[in-house]
Each structure stands twice: as structure tokens, then as C-alpha cells.
């Protein structure tokens, strides 16, 4: 699970959960896989990303490194920032661990890099 994916997941459809975002990450294995950088793609992605959630997610698994706490206003032209954003969004991967609903404490196991977000019928 890349942190871009974490940025997009919520547990709000669990009965009794109102926001369910962001999910807490408990990682037991994290990998960093280099991928081809595409500055245009990353800059178009930034407006779709909840940046503080991304920063906190990276920090919570020990990979905030030199990621800024806020996205700069000039992010479209800021190649250095876009490279850091690329790394945080699509290079850091949680291979195993759990995602945890911040309200209900429901755990969603991550194995083989795949979060299992399946709910039982009595949960929604």
C-alpha cells in the first residue's frame, strides 16, 4: 500500500463511524521502491491529496525525512518539492501491518502490500 492509497481510504461506511479518516497506520514492514518520476503527473496529483494527512502518515512510519509539513504555493514549478512528493506518495510502500479506524478501532490487515478493507455484513 502506497501512501497515496492511504490518503484516499476511509472507514466512514462502518456503522457508527462519522469520518473514519485518516486511518492510523501500524506498519510491520515498509519498503521504498524507486519509480519513474513524472513531474506533470505529481503536480496534477497534489491538489487531490490531503497533504497534512500524507505528512503525518509518512512520519508515523518513520519516513517523513525532508518532506515539508505543508505543500508550497509554487508546487507546480517546484521540481525539488515534486520529487519529495513523488517519493512520499508512490515510492514508500507498507507491505504488512494494519490500518486502524480512528473512531471504532477496527483493524484492517495489510498483507502482501494489500489492505483488506472488507467488512462483515453486520458492520455497515
Amino acid at each position: 500500500m502506497k501512501l497515496l492509497t492511504h490518503n484516499m481510504l476511509t472507514s466512514k461506511c462502518i456503522r457508527g463511524v462519522s469520518v473514519g479518516y485518516p486511518l492510523i497506520i501500524n506498519a510491520t514492514e515498509v519498503k521504498v521502491n524507486q519509480t519513474l518520476f513524472n513531474s506533470e503527473f505529481v503536480s496534477k496529483l497534489i491538489p487531490k491529496v490531503d497533504w497534512p494527512v500524507l505528512y503525518n502518515a509518512a512520519e508515523s512510519i518513520g519516513h517523513s525525512e525532508d518532506l515539508p509539513k505543508e505543500a508550497p504555493n509554487d508546487f507546480e514549478q517546484n521540481e525539488e518539492f515534486l520529487k519529495k512528493a513523488h517519493r512520499a506518495l508512490v515510492e514508500i510502500e507498507v507491505i504488512s501491518g494494519n490500518l486502524v479506524c480512528p473512531e471504532s478501532g477496527r483493524k484492517f490487515p495489510i498483507s502482501n502490500g494489500i489492505p483488506n478493507m472488507l467488512l462483515n455484513e453486520d458492520e455497515f
Partner: peptide
């Protein structure tokens, strides 16, 4: 798992998540 593997065999990358429809995505 099969989807993630198929992507890799073809030098692509797909983020695979187990869920019903798109119910756990916020955006």
C-alpha cells in the same frame, strides 16, 4: 493478489485493495 501480479508481469503497477465496489475510498 492476482491483479497486483498481472500488473507486475506487464511492467505496470496497480494498487490493489480488497473491498466491495469503491465503498472505502473517500475521493
Amino acid at each position: 493478489r492476482a491483479t497486483a501480479k498481472t500488473a507486475l508481469i506487464n511492467n505496470s503497477y496497480v494498487e490493489s485493495v480488497a473491498m466491495d465496489l469503491l465503498g472505502m475510498f473517500r475521493s
